[in-house]
Nucleic acid binder design. Structure first.
Length: 559
RNA sequence: GCGCCCGUAGCUCAGCAGGAUAGAGCAACGGUUUCCUAAACCGUGUGCCGGGGGUUCGAGUCCCUUCGGGCGCACCA
């Protein structure tokens, strides 16, 4: 276990025991032991750890919090925690613990011993599915898909690292209305390119990529499709185009560092009858009624403003119907938690989706929807406008081409999903410490460079147990202290679905490192100090590398 | 009209599951330095946390309300 958790647990037991004593001896009167926390104060002057136990008891015990704190302390058996050097009551009634910093001396051995696993949590025995991007296979990947990809994949990595059994899934919308229109658009382009004078469908996909796909079709099938009837022709064209688009999506996302465990086809849901089956099940449970020829789901029962159509008057199920079947299918696959990363433009879908889950008898809290707001691209200080030709501003593959996978992923992950984001292309490309991704990666490269210098001079990094950490100064101890936070940061990022915390953490740690680097020398005349600093460098390096890996950014050895 | 997200320093944004005196980067100003990786480092300050009300020992954080911005409200997905 990481040293910081050991201390927290110890303090937790210490306070709980003291509370038990105050109750048993009648010093304090209360029914329920409060759910106090052991936290790390923001301000160093407030100690290494603190607890709010006394303040939580104020009402029950009918006593001033500071007085309660004094009583709790009087019942503490500090002999159990020799690390604690001072306990005090402060502010409105906090109990602050000051701990001998030597506990941090254990940390490098833990970090180096765990290596790639430092920061990971114990196995949780919980299956979690993260579904993200799930872009329509009818066009190029856009910035919304890119942001969703970076966030979803990083979140999945964080959950994985925090000890969950994670599956990544892409839902392929290869059925329904938009595929219909896609087919008509492709067919129209095909016929046009073959010389026919026909109109392009009003709502059709007018982008250049459709034309490119059709050219590929012509290359393979020439004019052979002209003789077919429209139905047959569309089926063939759509099949070809979907394959091509999915290959494109898979490759682009792989270049973006994303690899899925499952590619799940909507079409399969329809063809296997699962969609109609789920509607029937809901009908039997009394959640479906017929009106004006369509079938409606009573989503108003679950807080929606109006009921939602599941089967249209033309007999075809809606996307929503398929999505209900899809989510039922997810739960049947045994996931304890199902997370969907959606664009904010889908937020209207959230409450009825949860409603449908509930109607089917599942706990809707097992479905978590992470909504993310829109992205605006900036180049040269101005917004990059939508291109009429391609229908997008910049596609994900173009973005990777322009700024690189690392910068793109870091920038998307750095911002909280629920704030609108401005993506500065110029900054992302910049090779300076103003560029946050460069700043963090550079810390890693610098450390590797120090190691190269050390080896060239004939020095090796000693094992963590061999060196004497007492020679380290406050700056180094502060860095170690921050490294001790890493497992907790990962855990919070995973639980609160906030991968941006990891990016922030890395910026912070890299900042501490750069600052240290700039006025202290690792390689120096004082051998014991050099040995300790080299080990410290290795703990920083491992932590940065592990953090970067979670957000899908490389940790270069040289820049 | 209804719903969701956002509103924090001049700008871009953090703020962990309410905690103590609200932070970072950039920009601005002042200084140091030419050093294991390259203009980097150190220091300086500004906040009606959009407004109002409430819950709480304690609110930037939770609830209500109001204003402003974005998005959504199809027998589309």
């Amino acid at each position: 276990m990481d040293p910081i958790q050991k201390l927290r647990d110890g303090l937790d037991r210490l306070v709980a025991a003291a509370l038990g004593q105050t109750q048993a001896t009648g010093l304090l009167r209360f029914e329920q032991q409060p759910e106090f926390v052991i936290e790390v104060p923001r301000d160093e002057g407030h100690g290494d750890f603190s607890t709010n136990a006394a303040m939580l008891l104020a009402r029950q015990a009918r006593m001033a919090p500071r007085q309660i704190a004094d009583i709790i302390i009087s019942q503490m058996d500090l002999g159990l925690m020799p690390e604690v050097v001072k306990v005090e009551v402060a502010g409105p009634g906090f109990i602050n613990f000051f701990v001998d910093q030597s506990w941090l001396y254990e940390l490098p051995a833990v970090v180096i011993g765990m290596g790639d696993r430092y920061g990971s949590g114990p196995h949780q025995n919980q299956k979690v599915q993260v579904e993200f991007v799930s872009a329509n296979p009818t066009g190029n990947l856009h910035m919304g898909n890119a942001r969703g990809g970076a966030i979803g994949d990083s979140l999945a990595n964080a959950l994985d690292f925090a000890g969950y059994d994670v599956e990544r899934e892409f839902y392929i919308n290869d059925a329904g209305n938009q595929i219909e229109i896609f087919g008509q658009s492709l067919e129209a382009r095909y016929l046009q390119l073959m010389g026919a004078k026909i109109d392009f469908p009003d709502e059709g996909y007018a982008g250049q990529d459709v034309v490119d796909t059709v050219k590929n079709i012509i290359r393979e099938h020439q004019d052979r499709l002209l003789q077919m009837d429209s139905l047959q022709r569309q089926a063939l064209i759509v099949d070809f185009a979907l394959k091509e688009k999915l290959t494109y999506i898979k490759n682009t996302l792989a270049n973006f560092g994303i690899n899925y465990d499952v590619w799940f086809s909507e079409k399969d849901l329809h063809e296997s009858g699962q969609v109609m089956k789920i509607i029937e099940e809901l009908r039997q449970r009394g959640y479906i009624y017929e009106e004006e020829g369509a079938w409606w789901f009573r989503s108003t029962l679950f807080g929606d403003e109006k009921d939602e159509v599941v089967v249209r008057a033309n007999g075809l199920p809606t996307y929503f119907a398929a999505d209900i079947a899809y989510h039922k299918n997810k739960f049947e696959r045994g996931f304890d938690k199902v997370i969907n990363v959606w664009g904010a433009d889908h937020h209207g879908h959230v409450s009825r989706m949860k409603g449908a889950i509930k109607a089917l008898g599942y706990d809707p809290d097992r479905l978590e929807i992470l909504l993310m707001q829109l992205v605006r691209l900036y180049r040269g200080g101005v917004v990059v406008r939508m291109s009429k030709r391609t229908g997008t501003t910049v596609s994900l593959d173009e973005l990777i081409e322009e700024v690189g996978k690392d910068a793109a992923r870091f920038f998307f992950v750095m911002r909280s999903p629920d704030s609108q984001m401005d993506f500065d292309l110029d900054l992302a490309k910049q090779r300076s410490q103003d560029n946050p991704v460069y700043y963090v990666q550079y810390a890693h490269a610098r450390i590797q460079s120090i190691f190269r210098q050390a080896r060239a001079a004939g020095f090796e990094i000693k094992s963590a147990a061999e060196v004497d950490y007492k020679v380290l100064g406050p700056e180094e101890m502060q860095i170690l202290r921050r490294i001790a936070d890493f497992p907790q940061e990962i855990s919070v990022a995973a639980h609160t679905m906030a991968p941006q915390r990891i990016a922030r953490y890395l910026l912070d740690l890299a900042g501490l490192f750069h600052s240290f680097y700039n006025h202290q020398r690792v390689l120096n005349e004082n051998r014991p100090l050099q040995d300790a600093r080299l080990v410290l460098m290795e703990t920083i390096r491992i932590t940065i590398k592990n953090g970067l890996r979670i957000i899908g950014v490389s940790a270069p050895d040289q820049m």
